[in-house]
Computed example of a mutant assay.
Amino acid sequence: MLSIIDIGSLTIALSLYIYAARARITDVVLFGDSYTAADGGVQWPWYLVGGAVCSNNLTPLYGEPDVSSGQQAWFIQDHIEAYNTSRQKLLLDPSSFVVVQFIGTNDVGIGSFLTADQAANVSLPDVADCQLNSLRMMHALGARKFILNSLIPLQLTGLYSNSSAPTIYYPQVHDGNAWNKGMYNLVHSLNRILSDGIDVLNAEWVGDGHVEWFNTYDLFETFYNNPALYFNGSIPANVTGHCHQCPDPNDYTKCGIGDCTLTERDSYMWWDELHPSEQTGRNLAAEIFRKIEGKSQY
């Protein structure tokens, strides 16, 4: 049986449980933001963290526990005995679990790099170093199997499309064309730095641990370009709109008016202007399971 140990918010956890029960890996440890626990239907009995970033010292957002300190502290609390002493012991078998890290959406988005609100003297390489160093910290705690997820094509979301219309996440008119081009550049730049950084980590550990790159970007492009293969609700597949509606971008209390129906939900790639749908989460979980098995092209 596969156990899900989610340190961030939960989105693919339940689906991973369903798809990975036969895998040799018995535990999956998830570090991340709301993309490890999207909205769009009940996907877990509770939610731990949404809006997380890699480090609040670099790209602070909402004050949620970040991956590099807050979420790792939870892992230490639950799974490390006698931490930081000569008797320190990992309570999990390193050969039986994989760490999945999926972070970065909030680091590059509104309130951060896209709107030039990151901390002073902070660059994309700093954010990449944060992600890589978080894996190093987990390695120091005894983890040996890792999957690092790339950022998705955020320019395909409603929030970062070329539309300048207000949204519930940014209820002001803005330059949608500039946002769309800027997000494309930010995502590709950070993904390239992270992909190159994986080679550095694997060279450092020389067989005593290994990081796999999961190309979430290409997978989501596949969903987008082949919608009928992945979205099967009661209406035609829809990869440009979203299920959850907020008709007044200045009033959260009106959110939900005009939502798609329960039978229509699985037709949508997106839950709202930023988050993937539950069906997208299922598809993602299935592919991550194939990655754990060594069978994924991504």
Score class of each variant (00 low, 15 high):
residue 258 G to Y: 09
residue 47 Y to W: 12
residue 247 P to H: 00
residue 16 L to E: 02
residue 263 T to A: 12
residue 54 C to G: 14
residue 174 H to D: 08
residue 211 V to H: 02
residue 7 I to C: 14
residue 16 L to C: 03
residue 88 Q to L: 05
residue 272 D to V: 02
residue 12 I to C: 04
residue 85 T to P: 01
residue 235 I to C: 08
residue 217 Y to E: 13
residue 283 N to S: 08
residue 233 G to H: 03
residue 109 G to F: 00
residue 58 L to D: 03
residue 55 S to A: 15
residue 30 L to I: 15
residue 263 T to D: 08
residue 216 T to V: 04
residue 235 I to N: 05
residue 156 L to P: 02
residue 298 Y to L: 14
residue 41 G to R: 11
residue 121 N to L: 10
residue 111 G to A: 01
residue 115 T to S: 12
residue 131 Q to A: 01
residue 150 S to Q: 03
residue 49 V to E: 15
residue 86 S to F: 09
residue 8 G to K: 04
residue 128 A to H: 01
residue 21 A to K: 15
residue 141 L to R: 07
residue 280 T to H: 05
residue 231 F to C: 07
residue 288 I to T: 06
residue 110 I to P: 00
residue 47 Y to D: 11
residue 109 G to V: 03
residue 84 N to E: 09
residue 123 S to L: 07
residue 107 D to P: 10
residue 105 T to M: 03
residue 162 N to W: 09
residue 59 T to N: 11
residue 98 V to W: 02
residue 69 S to V: 15
residue 160 Y to T: 06
residue 57 N to V: 14
residue 139 H to M: 09
residue 195 S to A: 15
residue 219 L to N: 07
residue 28 V to C: 14
residue 213 W to D: 04
residue 45 P to L: 14
residue 159 L to A: 10
residue 256 G to M: 07
residue 30 L to A: 12
residue 155 Q to A: 08
residue 106 N to I: 04
residue 83 Y to L: 02
residue 219 L to S: 07
residue 57 N to Q: 13
residue 43 Q to R: 14
residue 294 G to R: 08
residue 50 G to Q: 10
residue 237 A to L: 05
residue 121 N to K: 14
residue 261 T to K: 11
residue 282 R to C: 12
residue 187 V to H: 02
residue 274 L to Y: 07
residue 239 V to Y: 08
residue 128 A to P: 02
residue 142 G to F: 01
residue 39 D to F: 15
residue 244 H to S: 13
residue 93 D to Q: 02
residue 16 L to G: 08
residue 27 D to G: 12
residue 275 H to Q: 13
residue 30 L to R: 06
residue 222 T to H: 02
residue 208 D to G: 03
residue 236 P to E: 13
residue 254 K to G: 08
residue 127 V to F: 04
residue 171 P to R: 09
residue 223 F to D: 04
residue 66 D to F: 01
residue 99 V to C: 05
residue 32 G to W: 05
residue 189 S to Q: 11
residue 164 S to Y: 01
residue 116 A to S: 06
